[in-house]
Design a binder for these strands. Structure first.
Lengths: 116, 116
DNA sequence: AGCAGATGTTCGGGAATCCTGAACATGGTG
DNA sequence: CACCATGTTCAGGATTCCCGAACATCTGCT
């Protein structure tokens, strides 16, 4: 899947990262949860889209990942049938120091709220 | 004006501030510019809505202020015919330390881009 | 008091965005 | 090859955003 032919997995370069886009990407509970789980497997840890069991439809989840990638919060690559996601920690820490450290605990709270 | 009778200027308490709402409020260039200008008159400095000369319509600007207030980023009070705005610095710093210090320079860049 | 100006808010319509189920595409497996 | 698993795309309805126009409130002037 992943339609490699159609959507070529475009990522913004570090210089192209925009604060407003990153904030917009992080301003959603589901996306915060995704970021927090990715932070738990750092560094170099990757998680497939499917392992996140969020209470939203599959297409909505797909949209969330695209939003995060186009904002530059995560990096995606295809491996076989799965799309693997990794947090762009170094880029974000360099440009917006402290932001991820603020967002990640908030994402964990979302996860706790979903489970509990 | 300010329609004191209809919309009673409701502010969230500190405990009611939500990270996602604050991030959403800060994820817009115009609102970032507002925050940066309010930061320049801290502490206890207040600015009327009208002093911000943003390239948006008056009604849009009014909506931006409401978004910021309902997210808990600013505090508003009416004085005569003007609505005065103040940054909720202590609340935000306590709950999300570093976030404003990240957002304010970004807002200044927006302002510089508008002037230049 | 009455009227005009200043400052903001609200309302209605058109544009853009978000969420979802259904259909589609691709890779792995028996 | 048939089948399943993983994700994406598409079309629709609902929500949100932006704007101009109209409205509301306060202040000042005569």
């Amino acid at each position: 899947m992943a339609s490699r032919t159609a959507t070529e997995l475009t990522h913004p370069t570090r210089a192209e990262l925009r604060f407003t886009a990153v904030l917009a990407a992080l301003s959603d509970p589901m996306r915060l949860a995704i970021v927090a789980r990715l932070a738990d497997v750092e560094p170099d840890g990757e998680l497939a889209c499917g392992v996140f069991q969020l209470p939203v439809s599959k297409s909505t989840q797909s949209g969330h990942f695209r939003t995060l990638r186009e904002a530059g919060v995560i990096r995606q690559r295809d491996e076989g049938t799965r799309r693997l996601n990794r947090l762009r920690r170094t880029d974000l820490d360099e440009l917006f120091p402290g932001l991820l450290d603020l967002a990640i605990p908030q994402g964990r709270e979302v996860i706790a709220g979903l489970a509990g």
